[in-house]
């Protein structure tokens, strides 16, 4: 096997089909970048889910005096009622932990959460804060029984599942991920067809050479390798461009995102690296596959 012979053939082939090669590179690059973004969103969502689901709880707000909630009927929850409720909640299956938050603590939390809005903090008093139970579950997905059991109890103003709130956010991320993956699949398909076309053009351009190679007994591998290598090189270059796009995405989108969501859920460079290598492997594999399938049809050996 003479490597320099193969490479000169590959170079000639790529140069002759320059526009097609560029088209292949762009399609592979965008396709692989979309796939990579999909994978990155996937990792990000996974990390955020484990992070947030640990903290997900159900808040059971209790009636305070003069509460406007219809469930309270204008009466506040008595200390005795609070004790009974606590016992009941602990008795429900799937409950891991119950924490009582009194008005002072609630006020502290409120001050913290709305620290940027001093006017609101000033206006609120500790007496305005509702008392509540923070209920932690073993399985955050299994919240239905707790909510059913507590809604409508005497002294309970409102039951709020935090998962409903962040669930909306995760739903949006899921949609984004699927959109990216679908776009990636379509583009990968387009890339495969383009590669097939390029290889076909290449085989047609070099039919004289391949005919003679066949005639003098060159092995199938020797005849096909330059064409497959063309696909591999286009795939690799596309992969490198995709890698650059993914790094840019990580820097400008995912790092901006982590500023809002807290650094503990930031996507690390190690996951970016594994996503890049995965997309590279997939890209090159698809290129090789498309080349081989086309050669079977257009280069009779």
């Amino acid at each position: 096997m003479r490597a320099n012979f193969i490479f000169s053939e590959v170079w000639i082939g790529l140069r002759r089909n320059l526009t097609m090669t560029i088209a292949v590179i762009i399609t592979v690059a965008v396709g692989m970048a979309m796939l990579g973004v999909g994978l990155m969103i996937n990792t990000q969502v996974g990390m955020m889910k484990t992070f947030w689901y640990d903290k997900v709880e159900i808040s059971v707000f209790l009636c305070s005096k003069d509460s406007a909630m219809p469930a309270c009927k204008g009466k506040g929850a008595t200390p005795a009622q609070v004790e009974t409720l606590k016992g009941e909640i602990q008795g429900i299956q799937g409950v891991k932990d119950v924490i009582f938050e009194n008005q002072t603590e609630a006020y502290k939390n409120f001050q913290q959460s709305f620290g940027s809005n001093q006017a609101l903090v000033q206006a609120a008093r500790a007496e305005d804060m509702p008392e509540s139970f923070r209920v932690k579950l073993h399985d955050p997905d299994n919240y239905q029984p707790v909510i059913q059991a507590l809604t409508g109890k005497t002294g309970v103003a409102q039951v709020i599942n935090h998962k409903d709130l962040i669930g909306k956010f995760f739903e949006m991320l899921d949609t984004l991920r699927w959109a990216a993956v679908i776009v990636a699949i379509v583009l990968v398909l387009a890339a495969a067809l383009l590669i097939g076309n390029t290889v076909r053009l290449s085989a047609y351009n070099r039919r004289r050479e391949t005919g003679i190679m066949r005639l003098v007994g060159a092995s199938n591998l020797y005849i096909q390798l330059p064409f497959v290598m063309e696909g591999v090189i286009a795939g690799l270059v596309g992969g490198v461009v995709a890698a650059v796009m993914l790094i840019v995405t990580k820097v400008f989108i995912f790092e901006a995102l982590s500023k809002y969501l807290g650094t503990s859920t930031a996507l690390g460079w190690d996951s970016v690296a594994s996503v890049i290598s995965a997309t590279m492997v997939i890209g090159v594999f698809i290129c090789v596959l498309a080349s081989f399938v086309t050669l079977r049809r257009y280069l009779r050996v």
Binding site: R214, L215, V216, G217, A218, S219, N220
Partner: peptide, 16 residues
């Protein structure tokens, strides 16, 4: 088959 063809030379009307 390629090994067979290495033992056979071919000449054509159109030179190739």
């Amino acid at each position: 088959v390629p090994h067979l063809r290495r033992r056979i030379g071919c000449v054509f009307q159109d030179f190739r």
